[in-house]
Design a protein around this nucleic acid. Structure first.
Length: 363
DNA sequence: AAAGCGTGGCC
DNA sequence: TGGCCAAGCTT
Protein backbone atom coordinates (compact mmCIF):
# COMPACT_ATOMS: atom_id res chain seq x y z
CA UNK A 1 0.00 0.00 0.00
CA UNK A 2 1.05 3.61 -0.55
CA UNK A 3 1.53 5.54 2.69
CA UNK A 4 -0.14 8.93 2.59
CA UNK A 5 2.21 11.89 2.88
CA UNK A 6 2.00 15.57 2.05
CA UNK A 7 4.70 17.36 0.01
CA UNK A 8 7.56 18.81 2.12
CA UNK A 9 7.12 22.57 2.47
CA UNK A 10 10.24 24.72 2.75
CA UNK A 11 8.25 27.15 4.92
CA UNK A 12 7.82 24.45 7.58
CA UNK A 13 11.54 23.78 7.63
CA UNK A 14 12.32 27.51 7.85
CA UNK A 15 9.88 27.94 10.75
CA UNK A 16 11.62 25.08 12.55
CA UNK A 17 15.01 26.67 11.83
CA UNK A 18 13.86 30.01 13.24
CA UNK A 19 13.33 28.26 16.57
CA UNK A 20 16.07 25.63 16.59
CA UNK A 21 19.02 26.96 14.58
CA UNK A 22 22.34 25.93 16.09
CA UNK A 23 24.56 28.79 17.20
CA UNK A 24 27.88 28.34 15.43
CA UNK A 25 30.90 30.66 15.38
CA UNK A 26 30.70 31.18 11.62
CA UNK A 27 26.94 31.52 11.43
CA UNK A 28 24.68 34.58 11.24
CA UNK A 29 21.51 33.62 13.16
CA UNK A 30 18.20 33.71 11.27
CA UNK A 31 16.89 36.69 13.30
CA UNK A 32 19.92 38.75 12.31
CA UNK A 33 19.70 37.68 8.68
CA UNK A 34 16.05 38.77 8.64
CA UNK A 35 17.16 42.13 10.06
CA UNK A 36 19.50 42.55 7.12
CA UNK A 37 22.82 41.44 8.59
CA UNK A 38 25.06 40.05 5.83
CA UNK A 39 27.51 37.26 6.62
CA UNK A 40 31.19 37.85 5.85
CA UNK A 41 31.96 35.71 2.76
CA UNK A 42 35.46 35.08 4.10
CA UNK A 43 34.09 33.46 7.25
CA UNK A 44 31.56 31.47 5.26
CA UNK A 45 34.24 30.23 2.89
CA UNK A 46 36.74 29.40 5.64
CA UNK A 47 34.16 27.43 7.61
CA UNK A 48 32.89 25.56 4.56
CA UNK A 49 36.37 24.41 3.57
CA UNK A 50 37.12 23.26 7.11
CA UNK A 51 33.77 21.48 7.37
CA UNK A 52 34.38 19.32 4.29
CA UNK A 53 34.18 15.76 5.65
CA UNK A 54 34.91 17.13 9.12
CA UNK A 55 32.78 17.38 12.26
CA UNK A 56 31.58 20.70 13.66
CA UNK A 57 33.21 20.06 17.04
CA UNK A 58 36.55 19.34 15.36
CA UNK A 59 36.37 22.48 13.24
CA UNK A 60 35.46 25.02 15.93
CA UNK A 61 38.90 25.55 17.53
CA UNK A 62 40.63 25.62 14.13
CA UNK A 63 38.14 28.16 12.81
CA UNK A 64 38.64 30.42 15.83
CA UNK A 65 42.43 30.14 15.57
CA UNK A 66 42.49 30.91 11.83
CA UNK A 67 40.12 33.84 12.20
CA UNK A 68 42.12 35.33 15.07
CA UNK A 69 45.39 34.98 13.20
CA UNK A 70 44.15 35.85 9.70
CA UNK A 71 41.01 38.03 10.08
CA UNK A 72 40.63 38.71 6.33
CA UNK A 73 41.34 36.95 3.07
CA UNK A 74 44.10 39.50 2.47
CA UNK A 75 45.79 38.44 5.71
CA UNK A 76 45.65 34.82 4.64
CA UNK A 77 47.02 35.67 1.20
CA UNK A 78 49.92 37.46 2.87
CA UNK A 79 50.77 34.44 5.04
CA UNK A 80 53.48 31.93 4.09
CA UNK A 81 52.01 28.60 2.96
CA UNK A 82 54.21 27.00 5.59
CA UNK A 83 52.37 28.82 8.38
CA UNK A 84 49.00 27.79 6.96
CA UNK A 85 50.04 24.13 6.82
CA UNK A 86 51.25 24.31 10.43
CA UNK A 87 47.98 25.84 11.57
CA UNK A 88 46.03 23.17 9.66
CA UNK A 89 48.02 20.29 11.17
CA UNK A 90 45.69 17.71 12.75
CA UNK A 91 42.62 18.69 10.72
CA UNK A 92 43.32 16.20 7.93
CA UNK A 93 42.84 16.24 4.15
CA UNK A 94 45.83 18.53 3.79
CA UNK A 95 45.22 19.42 0.15
CA UNK A 96 42.44 21.57 1.60
CA UNK A 97 45.05 23.74 3.32
CA UNK A 98 47.12 24.12 0.17
CA UNK A 99 44.00 24.97 -1.84
CA UNK A 100 42.84 27.37 0.89
CA UNK A 101 46.03 29.34 0.50
CA UNK A 102 45.87 29.16 -3.31
CA UNK A 103 42.26 30.36 -3.20
CA UNK A 104 43.12 33.32 -0.97
CA UNK A 105 45.94 34.25 -3.35
CA UNK A 106 43.59 34.03 -6.36
CA UNK A 107 40.89 36.12 -4.68
CA UNK A 108 43.43 38.81 -3.92
CA UNK A 109 45.18 38.75 -7.29
CA UNK A 110 42.26 38.20 -9.67
CA UNK A 111 39.29 39.57 -7.74
CA UNK A 112 40.68 42.54 -5.83
CA UNK A 113 40.37 40.77 -2.50
CA UNK A 114 36.62 40.15 -2.80
CA UNK A 115 35.11 36.70 -3.28
CA UNK A 116 32.97 36.19 -6.40
CA UNK A 117 29.30 36.60 -5.47
CA UNK A 118 27.80 33.83 -7.62
CA UNK A 119 28.07 30.07 -7.28
CA UNK A 120 29.40 29.89 -10.84
CA UNK A 121 32.16 32.38 -10.04
CA UNK A 122 33.06 30.66 -6.79
CA UNK A 123 33.16 27.28 -8.52
CA UNK A 124 36.24 28.39 -10.48
CA UNK A 125 38.36 28.80 -7.35
CA UNK A 126 40.77 26.15 -5.99
CA UNK A 127 39.22 23.80 -3.45
CA UNK A 128 35.67 24.96 -4.19
CA UNK A 129 33.48 22.33 -5.83
CA UNK A 130 29.77 21.84 -6.50
CA UNK A 131 28.70 21.77 -2.88
CA UNK A 132 30.93 24.52 -1.50
CA UNK A 133 30.19 26.99 -4.30
CA UNK A 134 26.45 26.55 -3.83
CA UNK A 135 26.71 26.77 -0.04
CA UNK A 136 28.76 29.98 -0.03
CA UNK A 137 26.52 31.66 -2.62
CA UNK A 138 23.39 30.67 -0.71
CA UNK A 139 24.65 31.57 2.75
CA UNK A 140 26.53 34.76 1.86
CA UNK A 141 24.20 36.12 -0.85
CA UNK A 142 20.95 34.15 -0.63
CA UNK A 143 21.44 32.79 -4.14
CA UNK A 144 18.85 29.99 -4.52
CA UNK A 145 21.53 27.45 -5.44
CA UNK A 146 20.88 23.75 -4.87
CA UNK A 147 23.06 22.91 -1.87
CA UNK A 148 23.70 19.17 -1.65
CA UNK A 149 25.96 17.72 1.01
CA UNK A 150 25.82 14.51 3.02
CA UNK A 151 23.05 15.88 5.24
CA UNK A 152 20.89 16.86 2.29
CA UNK A 153 21.46 13.48 0.68
CA UNK A 154 20.28 11.73 3.83
CA UNK A 155 17.27 13.99 4.44
CA UNK A 156 15.97 13.94 0.88
CA UNK A 157 16.66 10.26 0.29
CA UNK A 158 14.38 9.60 3.26
CA UNK A 159 11.72 12.16 2.43
CA UNK A 160 11.35 10.75 -1.09
CA UNK A 161 12.51 7.18 -0.36
CA UNK A 162 15.19 7.34 -3.05
CA UNK A 163 16.17 3.72 -3.68
CA UNK A 164 19.10 4.42 -5.99
CA UNK A 165 22.32 3.89 -4.02
CA UNK A 166 24.80 6.74 -3.57
CA UNK A 167 26.85 8.04 -5.22
CA UNK A 168 24.68 7.17 -8.23
CA UNK A 169 21.70 9.00 -6.73
CA UNK A 170 23.48 12.36 -6.58
CA UNK A 171 21.89 13.79 -9.72
CA UNK A 172 18.44 12.68 -8.66
CA UNK A 173 18.87 14.25 -5.23
CA UNK A 174 20.28 17.47 -6.70
CA UNK A 175 17.19 17.76 -8.88
CA UNK A 176 14.94 17.29 -5.86
CA UNK A 177 16.88 19.91 -3.92
CA UNK A 178 16.69 22.34 -6.86
CA UNK A 179 12.91 21.90 -6.90
CA UNK A 180 12.60 22.48 -3.16
CA UNK A 181 14.99 25.40 -2.72
CA UNK A 182 12.99 28.61 -2.09
CA UNK A 183 13.78 31.83 -3.94
CA UNK A 184 13.75 33.74 -0.63
CA UNK A 185 15.85 32.83 2.41
CA UNK A 186 17.95 30.38 0.39
CA UNK A 187 20.80 30.73 2.87
CA UNK A 188 18.66 29.92 5.88
CA UNK A 189 17.08 27.05 3.94
CA UNK A 190 20.49 25.52 3.20
CA UNK A 191 21.61 25.87 6.79
CA UNK A 192 18.28 24.51 8.01
CA UNK A 193 18.76 21.37 5.92
CA UNK A 194 22.18 20.84 7.47
CA UNK A 195 20.89 21.40 10.99
CA UNK A 196 18.02 19.02 10.36
CA UNK A 197 20.43 16.36 9.12
CA UNK A 198 22.87 16.94 11.97
CA UNK A 199 20.42 17.09 14.86
CA UNK A 200 17.22 15.20 13.94
CA UNK A 201 17.55 13.32 10.67
CA UNK A 202 20.68 11.53 11.89
CA UNK A 203 22.15 8.37 10.34
CA UNK A 204 21.10 6.21 13.31
CA UNK A 205 17.89 6.54 15.30
CA UNK A 206 16.56 9.74 13.74
CA UNK A 207 14.22 11.82 15.94
CA UNK A 208 11.30 11.75 13.52
CA UNK A 209 8.74 12.84 16.10
CA UNK A 210 10.49 16.23 16.33
CA UNK A 211 10.92 16.68 12.58
CA UNK A 212 9.07 19.51 10.82
CA UNK A 213 8.78 17.23 7.79
CA UNK A 214 7.56 14.15 9.65
CA UNK A 215 4.28 14.03 7.76
CA UNK A 216 6.07 14.58 4.45
CA UNK A 217 8.52 11.72 4.78
CA UNK A 218 7.80 8.66 2.66
CA UNK A 219 10.46 6.54 4.38
CA UNK A 220 9.11 7.40 7.82
CA UNK A 221 5.55 6.62 6.73
CA UNK A 222 6.84 3.15 5.84
CA UNK A 223 9.00 2.85 8.95
CA UNK A 224 12.11 2.49 6.77
CA UNK A 225 13.95 5.76 7.48
CA UNK A 226 17.09 4.05 8.78
CA UNK A 227 17.49 2.20 5.48
CA UNK A 228 18.30 5.50 3.73
CA UNK A 229 20.39 6.73 2.12
CA UNK A 230 21.25 3.53 0.30
CA UNK A 231 24.95 3.32 -0.40
CA UNK A 232 27.08 1.31 -2.78
CA UNK A 233 29.40 -1.14 -1.06
CA UNK A 234 32.81 0.26 -0.22
CA UNK A 235 36.11 -1.43 -0.94
CA UNK A 236 37.77 -2.96 2.10
CA UNK A 237 40.79 -1.34 3.73
CA UNK A 238 44.14 -2.96 2.89
CA UNK A 239 47.03 -3.15 5.37
CA UNK A 240 50.36 -1.37 4.99
CA UNK A 241 53.44 -1.53 7.18
CA UNK A 242 56.50 0.66 7.62
CA UNK A 243 59.15 1.93 10.00
CA UNK A 244 59.66 5.41 11.46
CA UNK A 245 62.88 6.67 13.04
CA UNK A 246 62.75 9.14 15.89
CA UNK A 247 66.21 10.58 16.38
CA UNK A 248 66.45 12.44 19.69
CA UNK A 249 69.29 14.80 20.44
CA UNK A 250 70.56 15.23 24.01
CA UNK A 251 68.84 18.64 24.19
CA UNK A 252 65.52 17.06 23.19
CA UNK A 253 65.53 18.15 19.54
CA UNK A 254 64.00 15.68 17.08
CA UNK A 255 64.99 15.05 13.46
CA UNK A 256 62.28 15.98 10.93
CA UNK A 257 61.90 16.28 7.19
CA UNK A 258 59.28 17.48 4.72
CA UNK A 259 57.07 15.16 2.70
CA UNK A 260 56.54 15.68 -1.04
CA UNK A 261 54.05 18.44 -1.89
CA UNK A 262 51.49 16.11 -3.45
CA UNK A 263 49.90 12.87 -2.35
CA UNK A 264 49.35 11.45 1.11
CA UNK A 265 50.06 14.04 3.83
CA UNK A 266 51.41 16.22 1.00
CA UNK A 267 53.61 19.10 2.11
CA UNK A 268 53.44 18.10 5.74
CA UNK A 269 56.33 17.31 8.10
CA UNK A 270 57.38 13.80 9.14
CA UNK A 271 60.03 11.87 11.00
CA UNK A 272 62.27 9.95 8.58
CA UNK A 273 60.95 6.52 7.73
CA UNK A 274 60.75 3.67 5.25
CA UNK A 275 58.19 3.38 2.49
CA UNK A 276 54.85 1.97 3.63
CA UNK A 277 54.50 -1.39 1.93
CA UNK A 278 51.14 -2.92 1.15
CA UNK A 279 50.64 -6.41 2.54
CA UNK A 280 54.13 -6.54 4.05
CA UNK A 281 54.71 -9.08 6.80
CA UNK A 282 58.08 -7.77 7.87
CA UNK A 283 59.35 -4.25 7.53
CA UNK A 284 62.78 -2.73 7.41
CA UNK A 285 64.82 -2.00 10.53
CA UNK A 286 67.79 0.26 11.26
CA UNK A 287 69.32 -0.36 7.81
CA UNK A 288 66.65 2.02 6.47
CA UNK A 289 67.39 4.72 9.07
CA UNK A 290 68.51 8.20 7.95
CA UNK A 291 71.71 7.98 9.99
CA UNK A 292 73.81 5.42 11.82
CA UNK A 293 73.02 5.17 15.51
CA UNK A 294 72.13 2.72 18.24
CA UNK A 295 68.51 2.28 17.13
CA UNK A 296 66.11 0.68 19.60
CA UNK A 297 62.69 -0.52 18.60
CA UNK A 298 59.69 0.59 20.67
CA UNK A 299 57.75 -2.48 21.81
CA UNK A 300 54.31 -1.50 20.52
CA UNK A 301 53.96 -0.29 16.93
CA UNK A 302 51.75 2.69 16.12
CA UNK A 303 48.49 1.75 14.43
CA UNK A 304 46.89 4.47 12.32
CA UNK A 305 43.84 4.22 10.11
CA UNK A 306 43.74 6.32 6.95
CA UNK A 307 40.77 6.60 4.63
CA UNK A 308 41.97 3.88 2.28
CA UNK A 309 44.44 1.75 4.26
CA UNK A 310 45.45 0.74 7.77
CA UNK A 311 49.05 1.40 8.76
CA UNK A 312 51.23 -0.48 11.24
CA UNK A 313 54.26 1.64 11.97
CA UNK A 314 57.28 0.20 13.78
CA UNK A 315 58.90 2.94 15.84
CA UNK A 316 62.66 3.09 16.34
CA UNK A 317 64.46 5.64 18.47
CA UNK A 318 68.06 6.62 19.10
CA UNK A 319 69.93 9.16 21.23
CA UNK A 320 72.36 11.44 19.48
CA UNK A 321 74.82 14.12 20.65
CA UNK A 322 73.86 17.81 20.34
CA UNK A 323 76.59 18.22 17.78
CA UNK A 324 75.21 15.68 15.34
CA UNK A 325 74.46 17.38 12.00
CA UNK A 326 71.08 16.89 10.32
CA UNK A 327 71.48 14.67 7.25
CA UNK A 328 70.26 15.66 3.78
CA UNK A 329 67.34 18.06 3.82
CA UNK A 330 66.22 17.07 7.31
CA UNK A 331 66.43 19.44 10.26
CA UNK A 332 66.53 19.34 14.03
CA UNK A 333 63.32 20.67 15.61
CA UNK A 334 63.84 21.92 19.15
CA UNK A 335 61.47 20.80 21.86
CA UNK A 336 60.09 24.35 21.90
CA UNK A 337 59.39 24.31 18.15
CA UNK A 338 58.02 20.79 17.92
CA UNK A 339 54.43 21.62 18.92
CA UNK A 340 54.31 24.21 16.12
CA UNK A 341 55.61 22.03 13.31
CA UNK A 342 53.27 20.88 10.51
CA UNK A 343 52.98 17.39 11.97
CA UNK A 344 49.99 15.27 10.96
CA UNK A 345 48.45 13.14 13.68
CA UNK A 346 50.15 9.93 12.62
CA UNK A 347 53.55 11.61 13.02
CA UNK A 348 52.64 13.00 16.43
CA UNK A 349 51.71 9.46 17.45
CA UNK A 350 55.07 8.17 16.20
CA UNK A 351 57.03 10.82 18.12
CA UNK A 352 54.93 10.32 21.26
CA UNK A 353 55.64 6.59 21.14
CA UNK A 354 59.39 7.29 21.31
CA UNK A 355 59.41 10.50 23.38
CA UNK A 356 56.24 10.88 25.47
CA UNK A 357 55.10 14.49 25.83
CA UNK A 358 57.37 15.84 23.12
CA UNK A 359 54.68 17.14 20.76
CA UNK A 360 52.55 18.76 23.45
CA UNK A 361 53.33 22.11 24.95
CA UNK A 362 54.40 21.31 28.52
CA UNK A 363 55.60 23.35 31.51
C1' DA B 1 34.78 7.98 -13.15
C1' DA B 2 36.74 5.64 -9.64
C1' DA B 3 40.34 6.21 -6.59
C1' DG B 4 43.08 9.00 -3.47
C1' DC B 5 42.92 11.78 0.36
C1' DG B 6 42.85 12.34 7.54
C1' DT B 7 41.11 12.27 11.69
C1' DG B 8 38.56 11.52 15.94
C1' DG B 9 34.24 10.13 18.00
C1' DC B 10 30.72 6.87 18.55
C1' DC B 11 28.37 2.36 19.52
C1' DT C 1 36.66 -2.94 19.01
C1' DG C 2 36.30 -2.44 14.39
C1' DG C 3 33.40 -0.41 11.24
C1' DC C 4 30.96 3.66 10.30
C1' DC C 5 30.51 8.25 10.00
C1' DA C 6 31.30 13.83 9.26
C1' DA C 7 29.07 20.65 5.71
C1' DG C 8 33.78 16.95 -0.68
C1' DC C 9 37.46 18.04 -4.02
C1' DT C 10 40.81 16.65 -7.41
C1' DT C 11 42.59 13.95 -11.01
Amino acid sequence: MIPSVSPPRPADLLAWYDRHARRLPWRTPPAERRAGVKPDPYRVWLSEIMLQQTNVTTVKPYFEAFLARWPTVADLAAAPTEDVMKAWAGLGYYSRARNLKACADTVLRDHGGRFPETSAGLRELPGIGAYTSAAIAAIAHDEPAAVVDGNVERVLSRIFAVDTPLPGAKKEISALQAQLTPSKRAGDYAQAMMDLGATLCTPKRPACSLCPWETACVAHARGTEELYPRKAQKADRPERAGAAFVAIRADGAILLRKRPERGLLGGMTEVPGSDWIQGAKTVQGPEAAPLAADWQRVAAPVIHVFTHFRLTLDIWHARLPDTHPAPGDAWWASSADLPHEALPSVMKKAIEAAAPGATCKRK
